[in-house]
Write a protein that binds this DNA or RNA. Structure first.
Lengths: 327, 327
DNA sequence: CTTGTATATCGTAGCGCTACGATTTTTGAG
DNA sequence: CTCAAAAATCGTAGCGCTACGATATACAAG
């Protein structure tokens, strides 16, 4: 920065001022400074700036995994809205592990971030204490229904399960199964199961649960479907933890020659692009992946801008049932 | 840090020393310092540290989009290998736009990163000049065959295209099509097309090209397949730019009652999980998504550790054809 | 009990920038 | 042309930490 100042024949303060508040510098010098910056290829040192101003343009986000279209869509939207406002996302993968999350919380907090976005409500004791001690704005996303640490943006997975139960019941399905990725990995799938099960059993139906070993896997799904149908020959419908698992069910039925809907109805979760094109088109639930990112950005920006009119801190975005021909 | 020093009754220097080189501090004081840190919930300020030591633990990564299982797998692997070494990933989405990439390069370079990972060889003039001016180690990934700016880790998409051509020809397919997402979005798909086309035509075959409007979309894929088959009734096989598009083709064929392989053979790219379970199981190409991340981490770490034995800067990881029953 | 050497601790300067008050220049009314 | 107020510019003091040389302490050998 010193070099730029020298070349533009102004003081370093003026260069800093120009960078921070360009309109506070006379147009004549502004031009000289910009020329010098371009000539020298000068890039301000973000760390020095952050240290001096003791606030940073970093916003941390912790997701269980980015290899998951749900979270990556949210992440992408978040970035799209936050970067233009000058913020930089710091993304961490907790890999569904509380202690890794804690490590990430430490690591991100040590950047003195302007905000921190977490996935879900489950955090280690220590994480919570670190989080509450710091006065960083916190957002918990992709769930709804608990108190939360600060702001909450998501939807209720229980309600989502109930929505599908309602749909199944309306279609006349009583004997159902929930086919899920491991609950340990995805606690939110468990919440959907609970809501689903509650309403199905309350209406006199039944729900069998099957969990995959790990992440979505269509081959393992096929095995589980065959096993399920041989154990419960009267099964009428399966609600899957996500669209990939539901695709696995559809494909297994095709392989076995079981007609979808007549022999077995299938619903997914995610409303991924391909669900509209399966044979038959798949019934699924659309989570507000992008909206979550959008609203988090809005709320965070309002909070950081000191906008006091924005008092809202908890947002339930809900889900939408996309009824197609597989149920 | 001052507080910690006071509570532990040592000087701030010793606290810093303990944090940086714990073994250089007597065990007695080490313990006192750790206790003080825990009691106060102290987190070192990364920016101050980075500024003072004038090196940072940041490694920037620019990908076109993280909503893509290829890049997100690489990203996840990269993080898994780099975080334990104390590095923090700074991820940016260029959204397939050269000028956005340039913005990201600026923004990341201003963090004075320890390394920068870019996707592909195509960068704006200005980006290249910024990149060469800085002495940050650079890695260009997910492609191979050009000189590159510094290190290169990926594979040749041309060769990949040739590999599929060879497979098609061996199976007796001569009249082929390449069904792609927009080349503007994915220049690497274009390279695969070129390699594929070259070897198909050299062997007396033909290749028709069709591009989707934007990102993979199974519905649009279906339309394109019907159009393709009505324009070219003698078409024998389609090589798709990715597995989702290939799934779209498979599903359209199912819908139309066209037997896969007898009427039309299909190959994808990605070897995503579900490809093994489609009906019939899909032939596809497996790119080294994880290996790319792994080797970048290794090479970067070697470079940053000043390991001079590690002289390798260009790595072709190749691809693997996964021949299944759709071809 | 020296003395030399290794080990542990500390003080100070400075990383590159911003905030803020001090100083200088510009502007426009009288 | 004068002078006060406004606008533009500048100087200085840190932000929280690390590096490094200076100092203090421990330890072993003579």
């Amino acid at each position: 920065m010193g070099e730029v100042a020298q070349l533009a024949d102004v003081s370093p303060s003026t260069v800093s001022l120009y960078l921070r508040h360009p309109d506070k510098v006379s147009s004549q010098r502004a031009e000289r400074i910009q020329t010098a910056i371009d000539r020298l290829g000068y890039l301000p040192n973000t760390m020095a700036g952050g240290l001096a101003s003791s606030r940073s343009n970093v916003i941390g986000v912790i997701v269980p995994t980015i290899t998951n279209s749900f979270f990556s869509a949210t992440l992408e939207t978040l970035e799209r809205h936050l970067r233009p406002a000058g913020y930089q996302l710091l993304i961490g993968n907790s890999e569904f592990d509380e202690s890794r999350e804690e490590e990430l919380v430490r690591s991100i907090l040590s950047w003195n971030p302007a905000g921190l976005v977490l996935t879900g409500f489950v955090h280690s004791r220590k994480s919570i204490s670190l989080l509450t001690k710091s006065d960083t704005p916190i957002v918990e996303m992709w769930d709804f229904g608990q108190k939360g640490l600060d702001m909450v943006v998501g939807f209720s997975h229980r309600t989502c399960g109930k929505l599908v139960a309602e749909h199944f019941l309306a279609k006349g399905y009583r004997k159902a199964a929930f086919l899920s990725t491991s609950f340990q990995r995805d606690i939110r799938a468990k919440e959907r199961y609970q809501g689903f099960r509650e309403d199905m059993t309350n209406a006199g139906g039944s729900v069998v649960l099957r969990e995959l070993q790990g992440r979505s896997n269509t081959a393992e799904t096929g095995d589980l479907v065959r096993e399920l149908l041989s154990d419960h020959a009267d099964l009428e419908a399966i609600f899957c933890a996500n669209d990939i698992v539901a695709l696995g069910v559809l494909l297994e039925c095709q392989r076995q020659g079981w007609p979808i809907r007549d022999r077995l109805a299938v619903a997914g979760f995610g409303n991924q692009d391909f669900t509209a094109s399966t044979v038959p088109p798949m019934t699924t639930v659309e989570p507000p992946s992008q909206e979550i990112g959008q609203h988090i950005a809005r709320m965070l920006l309002a909070r950081l801008g000191g906008d006091l009119t924005e008092q809202e801190t908890r947002l339930d975005l809900g889900v939408r049932l996309v009824a197609r021909e597989s149920t």
